[in-house]
Nucleic acid binder design. Sequence first.
DNA 1: GATGAGTCTGGACAATCGTCAAGATCGATG
DNA 2: CATCGATCTTGACGATTGTCCAGACTCATC
Lengths: 208, 208
Amino acid sequence: MAGTKEARRAPSDKYDERRNQLAESALQTLGELGYARTSLREIANNSEFSHGVVHYYFADKFELIIYCVRYYKARCVTRYDSVVDDSTTPEGLLDAFAAKLVETLRDEAPMHRLWYDLRTQSMFEEKLREAVLMIDQTLEDMIWRIVSKYAELCGRPPAMTPAAAYGVLDGLFQQALLGHLTGAADAVDTMAARVHELMPLMVTSAAA
Amino acid sequence: MAGTKEARRAPSDKYDERRNQLAESALQTLGELGYARTSLREIANNSEFSHGVVHYYFADKFELIIYCVRYYKARCVTRYDSVVDDSTTPEGLLDAFAAKLVETLRDEAPMHRLWYDLRTQSMFEEKLREAVLMIDQTLEDMIWRIVSKYAELCGRPPAMTPAAAYGVLDGLFQQALLGHLTGAADAVDTMAARVHELMPLMVTSAAA
DNA sequence: GATGAGTCTGGACAATCGTCAAGATCGATG
DNA sequence: CATCGATCTTGACGATTGTCCAGACTCATC
């Protein structure tokens, strides 16, 4: 009654491996169809297993989706670390950051619309909140590493809180994603230009 | 075959009135349950009609939802006009704007999470895109009336494009909504403070 | 009061959903 | 080869979905 799953035996390697395989298929399906139209059968169809196996590895639909969210996080958390580590000037960091934003928006648009979908679903479904808020915090931390490093390279303290910096940048990113997915050819590059304009405003006493 | 609905007869008053009644019930239900879990039967249950009547006034689910989106727009478009018209100083406008944001976030949280839900759904569902992009543009215009009036009262030109201003403010608003709905007691007031900080950065050569 | 167009009800349909369980298959151990 | 737990397939269940329809109701008009 208490606990998530007690069936895992000694060779838990394969058990976790299968869970990750299913999470991979689930993420692909969710990114394609969205939360509302994704069924467990469709997820299984996009894997090499039958639909019954899903309930062998996950108690119910929510456990699978929440596992997916956490699994997805592991990929994102370090995505921008090289930008922070390799930059030595504020302009260089800003260019690298914007380029990385453009790249990730172009290459992983389905995954990002899924993230926004799940985050919005958490406004309605309590069960998703814990996992979603955890990722949201992780993303905020990631953005803050960029902004604080940028401020450091500028030799000035940041002018915003971590949450505020994440909020405004995430707004621009989501706007660009919507534009990109709805046919606006210049949405991605426009976002890059706006990030270039906005970033200097995030350190105190903005200078040219 | 072509056209949306040709059944409406002479007394089209009642016809439109019923459609609006159903849209009202649909918006209430969607705001409560979200797009994914809202069924036509549940919408009818929240109205004074039976579930069959929905298909008498709307061809299918999408026509109802799209009608709801446009119906919803009519309420929002003028919400901040008084803020623009009644303000005579930048500080006064900023205070009134932030207060209105706080008020609308507190009083109509379900309606706003529905908006973000539908906007995200439009990333997956083509049928929703036209209506969603239309509202998004309307909201951008609304925000721009605020920002440009603020800049005018400051005696300086705006430092951002309309889309950029909308993107960053919408990001902060969505962040506050998520926090508000997930139990962060100070999310709303924190947003108001951040809007106060951000707004001066939206006009050229930020001054204290 | 009879007529008929407009409106509404309630039941039915096929499709799909999450969930579950009985049995087949696999693979290591004896 | 026989055994047994782990893994997987397959079919089924009850519930819910969007959609449709036959018939009942409403009400102005003749």
